[in-house]
Design a protein around this nucleic acid. Structure first.
Lengths: 158, 158
DNA sequence: CTAGCTGCAAATATTTTGCATCGGA
DNA sequence: TCCGATGCAAAATATTTGCAGCTAG
């Protein structure tokens, strides 16, 4: 890696960390060493690390951090929209309908709803580039959000 | 439900079950009561049931079936392409890159690769219909297949 | 027969929670 | 000071595996 690249990356990382701090403050989430280090780890990685992997990496800087803090932090970051969770909730669900369709998954209760493409909509375009990685067997498009039932339930609580 | 609808559905179900049997034979998978019942359950459900839910439903017909048989059967059905797994592997992974992109996930080793949309490709179209279910927060498009490394490894074994 | 399937039990793997303490704002 | 965050230990959830007997082909 060239030195100026290093500098650029470092600059960009610093800027992202600052933005992250600001976001935390705006949401009255405290800026802790653990959070910063977890964010830095994720921001620098291209490997889509698991919670375990983040834990292992952060531990090198903060040897006392615990795995459950990593889980809690990742969850709060996801909620804040700072990180993206690849491949949803922990519980697998199965569908025998093989006609092309998508799913709306509730981020709260985990319920899954079928969504069919609009008539006339172009079908999913598989990027050519993907063949660099391997052979594609199928595609999975899900939209995530909060279902009406959970929204109603959340409203009542208040 | 109207009688003729029932008949139609029953007919269609029977046809699907027959096709399933044929597929099993062609792959030298044995046609067992357990497999048939699991397939029927899935084919009739629109609820995207979890392994537990399938287990509970099948148990009504086959009280002695075990949960691990359900897991094993669902896995083999997925491999045969008869059912689709909603929301991938059991281990969550995280991504701090929020620019629009997709993922190629290896169904064998679980590795995740970034895939960027082709320049000029139309952006993802969210079906209007989706608003019936709730409020969409984000979308997740993944392509599943076997990565080059796993393909090479599988080739060597033989 | 016999290779593949099943049930049972036990082991793993992953994620979540209660609680006392600590530390940022 | 005060409330949110952390670490520890334990629990809860979800999935997988070894093995001996059973069964479809």
């Amino acid at each position: 890696m060239y030195p100026h690249e290093q500098t650029e990356n470092t600059k960009e990382l610093k800027a992202r960390v600052e933005a992250f701090k600001a976001l935390c403050r705006s949401r009255s989430l405290r800026v802790t060493e653990q959070r910063l280090e977890i964010f830095r780890t994720l921001a620098q990685s291209k490997a889509h690390p698991s919670a375990e992997a983040v834990f292992a990496a952060v531990r090198k800087k903060l040897p006392n951090i615990s795995l459950d803090t990593v889980y809690r932090t990742l969850a709060s970051m996801e909620e804040a929209g700072v990180v993206f969770r690849v491949g949803l909730s922990t519980k697998a669900r199965f569908d025998a309908d093989l006609t092309p369709h998508y799913h709306f998954v509730c981020m709260d209760c985990g319920e899954v709803y079928d969504v069919f493409p609009q008539p006339g909509a172009p079908s999913l375009l598989v990027p050519q580039d993907i063949n660099r990685f391997g052979e594609v067997k199928n595609a999975n498009l899900q939209f995530r959000g909060i279902c009406n039932r959970c929204r109603a339930a959340a409203g009542k609580e208040k």
